[in-house]
């Protein structure tokens, strides 16, 4: 086996810098999105912010972490971890939002029971 087999992907320096500046730009964008009074997206806001974060994360993963040029399996490992995380989050969110009413009814009921002191 010769050194020819050991060829590794070497990231180019301009690409690394370009990625960094893109990440900083996206950070500034998300801060502006999150604090500006002019831009109000309501319920969409959290998804836009998460989308920007995901773009940033993908940049880091693909370029800084070399996933774009790496063995497919390593990417599969990361993605499958994220998929299971998604299932975990999704089911917990779905379930908890379904029984939220029972929790709130209880809190209200108990506060009413203690109500007379106005506490």
């Amino acid at each position: 086996m010769s050194h020819a087999d050991h060829k590794h992907h070497v990231a180019s320096l301009p690409l690394l810098w370009a990625t960094f500046f893109a990440l900083v730009a996206l950070t500034v964008l998300t801060v502006v999105m999150g604090t500006s009074d002019q831009i109000q997206l309501g319920w969409l806001d959290v998804w836009v912010v998460l989308f920007i974060a995901t773009v940033k994360a993908s940049l880091v993963a693909l370029i800084f972490m070399h996933l774009a040029a790496d063995k497919l399996f390593n990417g599969v490992v990361l993605v499958s971890a994220l998929v299971f995380m998604g299932i975990f989050l999704g089911m917990c969110l779905m379930d908890s939002s379904n029984y939220l009413a029972e929790q709130q009814a209880y809190v209200e009921g108990q506060q009413a029971l203690l109500g007379p002191t106005g506490s």
């Binding site: 999150g34 109000q40 997206l41 309501g42 959290v46 912010v49 998460l50 920007i52 974060a53």
Partner: peptide, 16 residues
Amino acid sequence: VDLVWIYLFPLLYLIR
């Protein structure tokens, strides 16, 4: 570690 912070920052600091 950086990736985690990329998500933590908007989730904790930028809540609308």
